[in-house]
């Protein structure tokens, strides 16, 4: 039986991780590297794109090799594949975006131990063919990326009054221009990332259409 490229099942692979199976807010994967780089949208964007790239390539490589990899050493094989891809991304960023790479510092390296990637390789790519693995990777990486961008949006907007480095609030609002507005410096500090994510989770789970069985006990 051969399913078409965009059959219902395949579309679900793509859309589920964006919403009710989101890797960050529901499956609790990949939070480690997600939060620290959400002070500015630019960093978050570069990080999400790196993760999309690494994830798609790794998922497809592992999926293509799935019949050749002995199951005893699969973790090492996965680690090697992922870390080579990450080294590649790191070198590219160093060459073309040195200032962003400087700020992301160790967090690009930490993509290696990002549990989303290992989790999807282990749970999906090892048992599925190329095309579904590709869709699954895109879905999960974008699901990760949009949470990152959402957190970064709020933190940059309220923390420094900018988006992508461009000032949003007019000068007249600030005290120097005779206004009333002050940037909320707390938003730039690390703990606020956690609280913003907590609130996003809250909003997401408050929707009427959110499946009851995914709600947790304390």
């Amino acid at each position: 039986m051969k399913s078409t490229l965009f059959s219902k099942k395949n579309r679900k692979l793509l859309s589920d991780p964006l919403g009710d199976q989101n890797p960050i807010t529901i499956q609790v994967l990949g939070i480690c590297s997600a939060l620290a780089i959400t002070v500015q949208l630019q960093q978050a964007l570069v990080m999400s794109m790196s993760v999309v790239f690494v994830m798609v390539c790794a998922n497809m490589i592992i999926s293509a090799l799935r019949n050749v990899i002995p199951s005893r050493i699969r973790i090492i094989v996965q680690l090697v594949v992922v870390s080579s891809l990450v080294v590649f991304v790191d070198q590219v960023l160093q060459a073309f975006l040195p200032d962003v790479q400087e700020k992301l510092s160790v967090f690009i390296g930490l993509i290696v131990s990002n549990c989303i990637i290992m989790g999807r390789l282990e749970a999906f790519a090892l048992g599925n063919t190329l095309w579904p693995s590709f869709l699954d990777a895109i879905g999960n990486a974008v699901g990760y990326g949009w949470i990152l961008l959402a957190v970064a949006f709020f933190r940059e907007l309220f923390g420094s009054g900018k988006l992508f480095g461009y000032q949003v609030f007019p000068d007249g609002w600030y005290e120097a221009g005779g206004g009333f507005y002050l940037n909320n410096n707390l938003m730039i500090l690390p703990p606020m990332a956690l609280i913003v994510v907590g609130v996003i989770i809250w909003v997401q789970r408050s929707r009427k259409s959110f499946p009851d069985e995914l709600l947790e006990e304390n």
């Binding site: 609790v28 907590g198 609130v199 809250w202 997401q204 408050s206 709600l215 947790e216 304390n218």
Partner: peptide
């Protein structure tokens, strides 16, 4: 309820 577990 929506905040239980992960959110809180």
């Amino acid at each position: 309820a929506p905040l239980r577990g992960l959110g809180i």
